[in-house]
Design a binder for these strands. Structure first.
Lengths: 156, 156
DNA sequence: AGCCATTGTGCAAGTTGTTGCAATTGCAAT
DNA sequence: ATTGCAATTGCAACAACTTGCACAATGGCT
């Protein structure tokens, strides 16, 4: 029932206030099994206390993102989803054809992160990537589609 | 003055129409020296023909993106920018502190692209990445900031 | 307990971008 | 040159998200 102590305390230690709105929002993110949208958070907060404004939800999410406590991901649904970062870093492959999304290990981004640091002196925030493309199942279908179109005028 | 022939023809070969609106939009993207926003394109189109609607601009940009003729990038400005893809593939590092953005070579993403294909069977669209983080100049300042905050309560 | 600077909230208006629909237009066939 | 019709456009309404502002609440200080 109580808000996640470590995250609430992280906020206060950074000089921010732990208000009832923020406690409710934090509890909902923590209790949600996977990525959750701002609108879903807003709905659930309102079940407890109906006067919370959606802009408070967005402002809280932006604050938590700034403090690197949550990650924000665009899975191509027309809105973004949020997740506790302490839950373990992972990333997503999103198929542009079927819309399905697949997780992939943070490990695969390490080499890139290192090269950017070595060659450009740039410290990349690699909290949560979403990479778009074609999944294994959809690629054949897409290629067949290309062939049909090329067939219309004969050349590649 | 004439619209870029190859891109205009690409459109028609795919079965789409080459309308005056699309010709103007294409010419503007081609004549722009770097990444350009939808709003900038709209302004410039209206100088030639004031009745073009912003939704036509967005729809044309989405079409060109779908056909992989342009790339779309979020440089953290609150809107996205577009660029001809045939101009050579490159990506951006965006500093979350100073806002500056730096180009980096497509080559650095190749290994990731290959591993995603080998390990997940996923064909990643790597047209234009924007990776956020801290640039060389801003990292010291940010770390100093962290130290000050940690000092307030003594432990890390 | 009470004061006060500062942070946070709700509201309403503003952005960027998307979409349903009716009217228009490009273009291939006649 | 005209026709037919799917593709395209303009418009207005909408969705996700942000922001300016006045009021409210928090929490350190006395």
């Amino acid at each position: 029932m109580a808000t996640h102590p470590t995250i609430g305390e992280s906020l206060r230690q950074e000089g921010y206030r732990l208000t009832p709105q923020r406690m409710m929002i934090l509890a909902i993110i923590r209790d949600s099994s996977d990525h959750i949208s701002a609108e879903e958070i807003h709905q659930k907060v309102r079940q407890q206390y109906p006067f919370v404004n959606i802009s408070t939800v967005y402002r809280t999410l932006n604050l938590l993102k700034k403090l690197r406590l949550i990650s924000e991901t665009d899975l191509g649904e027309g809105y973004v989803r949020y997740e506790l970062l302490e839950r373990g870093r992972h990333h997503h492959l999103v198929c542009r054809r079927c819309g399905e999304s697949f997780a992939f290990e943070h490990e695969l981004l390490r080499p890139l992160q290192l090269r950017l640091l070595k060659e450009y002196g740039f410290t990349a925030d690699v909290d949560h990537f979403a990479i778009f493309g074609l999944c294994q199942r959809c690629r054949p279908a897409e290629e067949m589609n290309d062939v049909r179109k090329e067939g219309q005028h004969g050349a590649a």
